[in-house]
């Protein structure tokens, strides 16, 4: 089942100096349970805009977005219960401890106390956050903050998780730990939308990718499909070639999105630590 379905998504911003600016131009992709879907693109490509629409923070100008079969415009409340959103700029409250913050969001998701606290204990244990559970946000390191953000996004056990460049600014150790958490979540059957422009992360994590540039979808598919299609095994080089072609306008005929075609089927086994 496709947990995320994006069809002909457009987003226009009124801009005082540039006129109407097209942040997203007819984007379509789909992601299903138990896979990590990578949304790739350079800075300013429109990744964050797309993910904000998925997270119901922004409204699409046109097109349709369905999360867990709920429409982001018509059923925004249900969509919010079905997603967890982690962003690189999703700061945490300076004057709240990790425990208080996660508890606060658990309360907003209407979790009863008998479910909330055992789940919090479990998440804190799994993400190894017990050491700094009472530490105020202002005194946390970037890695700690990112863990708190993930804990906050997981508290209501959503089927879809959206990560917007989560490894930005993290050191290698923390970035590896984060990747490990993402893989665990995938193994639990979560659908993960993962935005990044770090190619090593893509190769390590993503089952499917969509490359967007200047608001347009350049290509989508599994890594193998892309490698075959563009005859390039080095993914970073492939990415660079696509962007160069995008600049020259060689992507008028982009491949249609075949929502049924999947080469690598993600494992849905529960080998990872269940959250």
């Amino acid at each position: 089942m496709d947990f995320v379905q994006v069809q002909n998504l457009c987003k226009n911003y009124p801009d005082a100096t540039r006129g109407e600016f097209k942040a997203l131009d007819n984007i379509s992709f789909a992601a299903k349970a138990g896979e990590v879907f990578g949304l790739l693109g350079p800075n300013g490509a429109g990744k964050t805009t797309a993910l904000r629409i998925l997270a119901t923070i922004l409204q699409p100008s046109s097109g349709s977005v369905r999360i867990y079969n709920f429409d982001v415009t018509e059923q925004a409340d249900l969509v919010r219960h079905s997603i967890g959103f982690v962003s690189n700029n999703t700061a945490i409250y300076d004057r709240m401890s990790a425990w208080e913050l996660v508890e606060y969001f658990g309360r907003l998701y209407a979790l009863p106390a008998d479910r909330l606290y055992p789940r919090m204990e479990k998440i804190f244990r799994t993400l190894q956050m017990e050491e700094f559970r009472d530490c105020p946000g202002a005194k946390m390191s970037t890695g700690m903050k990112q863990k708190v953000s993930i804990a906050r996004a997981l508290i209501h056990d959503p089927p879809v998780l959206i990560f917007d460049e989560p490894s930005l600014g993290l050191d290698v150790m923390v970035a590896r730990a984060l990747q490990s958490i993402v893989m665990d979540l995938r193994d639990q059957g979560k659908c993960i939308i993962y935005s990044t422009h770090i190619m090593r992360e893509v190769e390590r994590l993503c089952d499917h990718v969509a490359i967007i540039y200047k608001g347009k979808l350049l290509d989508t598919g599994t890594l193998e499909e892309l490698a075959d299609r563009h005859e390039q095994n080095d993914f970073e080089e492939l990415f660079f070639q696509l962007l160069t072609k995008g600049d020259k306008g060689h992507f008028d005929a982009k491949p249609p999105v075949d929502l049924g075609m999947r080469i690598r089927t993600a494992s849905t086994s529960s080998q990872g630590r269940a959250l």
Partner: peptide, 14 residues
């Protein structure tokens, strides 16, 4: 400024 509003906007609170 602190970036926390975005977190709240995608929470169940309208």
């Amino acid at each position: 400024e602190r970036g926390t509003l975005e977190t709240l906007l995608c929470s169940p609170a309208r």
